[in-house]
Simulated scan of single mutants.
Amino acid sequence: MAKRSNVRRLRAEFDANEYFEDAGHSPDIDLLERKWDPANEQPKHRKKTSRHHNNNEEPTGHTHATREQRFVKNITPRSEGQAKFMEAIDRDNLVMALGPAGTGKTYLAIAKAVDALKAGRVGRIVLCRPAVDAGENIGFLPGDMEDKLAPYLRPLYDALSDRLPAKSLKSMMAEGLIEIAPVAFMRGRTLNNAFVVIDEAQNCTYMQIKMLLTRLGWNSSMVVTGDPAQSDLLPELSGLGPAAEKLENMDDISVIRLAKEDVVRHPLVAQMLTAL
């Protein structure tokens, strides 16, 4: 009898804890003050969810808040230049997009890369960005290589997180489906079956641009984005503009030049670009 009484007591305590988790009460205060008795609780006040529910029914209770957020966005061009840019990505294996800030170069390129990966047209995404300071040296950064490169690659993380849930993004990066690498570690690689995005290419020298472009492998696409007017290198060292001029007339290569009319940020951005 004593053993059976202990089982009943433990079962009552378990039901009490489950009620407090669902109803948001404090078990310590209520049990001490005897404001709640599990024997008097009616089933209608408790919300239980079955693990094997019908697919057409929505789960009830707090489980709805823990569902993973789904990003189902249809990316559409907001200017004529963006429309040409997106058409060129679908048509050619190498696309170079040159234009001022706020024209959506990086965002559209990464959005197309994520769409290609989801559709199975490529096996991975490789994002590359030069680790160049914007005219300000903040000294040595702590941590390992990934920690040191994180501030430079943050814009790429922001664009990816806007297209993928955080859990899926973390899983894809852990599995190698999405790789973010600096320019310094790209030499000698052959990127097959990949969608490659080279961002902020105006901060690459001519030899770096040449090295990056020749990484293109079979069944791969590459998008190079940058603004030659905002290079953190000396004007004669930036290689994006000269490389685009030499490749502009080649077949299967598109060079898209965006203008202030394609700016999709705050309207003041286009005005400031004109004034500055």
Rank of each mutant, 00 (worst) to 15 (best):
M1W: 09
A2R: 15
A12S: 14
F20P: 00
D22F: 05
P27A: 07
D28R: 15
D30A: 11
D30H: 13
W36H: 11
R46G: 06
R46D: 08
K48Q: 14
E58I: 10
E58D: 11
H64S: 13
R67L: 14
F71V: 15
V72Q: 14
P77F: 02
R78M: 07
S79A: 06
K84G: 11
F85T: 02
E87R: 15
A88G: 08
D90Q: 14
R91H: 12
A109E: 01
K112V: 00
L117R: 10
E136P: 01
K148E: 08
L149H: 02
L149G: 01
L156G: 04
D162V: 01
L164R: 02
P165Y: 08
A166M: 12
K170C: 06
I180R: 01
P182V: 04
M186N: 06
R187N: 08
N193S: 12
V196I: 15
A201S: 10
N203M: 05
R215T: 06
W218G: 08
N219C: 03
N219I: 00
S221E: 04
M222W: 03
A229P: 01
Q230R: 12
D232K: 02
P235S: 07
E236F: 12
E236L: 09
S238Q: 12
L240S: 00
L240D: 00
A243M: 12
E248N: 09
I253D: 06
I256K: 02
L258S: 00
V263T: 05
V264K: 11
L268W: 06
